[in-house]
């Protein structure tokens, strides 16, 4: 009797063969929707280079659909002894708190949407970031953002003329947010094995032209009725940082409710093309 039981169990478990899984190609979701990946990072965070590499891959894979910004707030952001710059900012700290909960760094929020099956809001399992990009890109595009930028290198004034075109009728508390980020900054970064003295920091959030949760856009969005907004920013003079050629302006439209702070759409332009 017992032999029959044993044999049955072994047979049941070991005799099955699966149909091999087909792995789909990455970055092929094209719905017009974009996703803003807000990565919480820090120069004293040993795992953050891996997170930054993952973000760079996603930007590369999902050409034009993924917009990244790297936020240096408080946690693991103390400059290293060999650091030339301090990337911390009050805005970064505010965002770090605004995007809680998260377990550790690196972590990232995807269009500021709570992802199903995750207890964290900003997700620290960076292996999974691609799946949350897919989640967001699979959602219906509801808003189109067009940015017309002009930059005067003499005055260092950046003008952003933004047109927000709803694709559907929507009601609620809609906001617009503008971030200024800078790439190609060479400075020290802690890694899992050592300090990388000449690490290239990309998409570093330098400031925001709006509150972190955005400034009021409208209470109603009517299909094809474009709302225009403009912002002006004078890029500070600095010997090493605030290099206009390396800077990006990121614009997002979000909807604030008591339960959600989800970004509907985002767009970016380089300050200097």
């Amino acid at each position: 009797m017992k032999n029959i039981f044993l044999f049955s169990i072994i047979l049941t478990l070991l005799s099955c063969e699966e149909v091999p899984i087909q792995i789909p190609e990455a970055g092929i979701i094209e719905t017009g929707k974009t996703v803003l990946v807000e990565e919480l990072t820090g120069v004293s965070c040993p795992n953050c280079p891996a997170g930054a590499a993952q973000l760079a891959s996603l930007i590369e894979l999902y050409q034009g659909s993924v917009i990244g910004v790297s936020i240096h707030g408080d946690f693991l952001c103390d400059p290293l002894s060999s650091s030339k710059y301090d990337f911390r900012s009050e805005t970064g700290v505010e965002l770090e708190n605004y995007l809680k909960s998260w377990f550790g760094k690196p972590c990232a929020a995807f269009n500021r949407a709570q992802q199903d099956s995750e207890t964290e809001f900003a997700i620290s399992k960076f292996d999974l970031w691609g799946s949350y990009v897919d989640n967001e890109l699979s959602k219906e595009q509801q808003v189109e953002i067009l940015i017309d930028r002009s930059y005067d290198p003499n005055t260092r004034i950046l003008d952003l003329a933004i047109a927000v075109s709803p694709l559907v009728n929507l009601e609620g508390d809609f906001r617009i947010g503008v971030m200024i980020a800078e790439s190609h900054i060479i400075d020290a970064q802690l890694d899992q094995t050592d300090v990388i003295e000449e690490y290239e920091h990309n998409h570093v959030l330098r400031t925001m032209l709006t509150p972190i949760e955005g400034t009021t856009l409208s209470q109603t969005l009517v299909e094809n009725e474009t709302i225009n907004k403009s912002f002006q920013f004078t890029i500070p003079e600095d010997d090493n940082l605030w290099v206009a050629e390396n800077m990006e302006a990121i614009v997002f439209v979000n909807k604030i409710t008591p339960e959600s702070k989800e970004i509907l759409q985002a767009a970016e332009v380089h300050v200097v093309e």
Binding site: I21, I23, A26, L58, L128, G130, S131, D134
Partner: peptide, 9 residues
């Protein structure tokens, strides 16, 4: 799907 979304990259 989560595993695949990691591996496909």
């Amino acid at each position: 799907n989560r595993v695949i979304s990691i591996i496909k990259n």
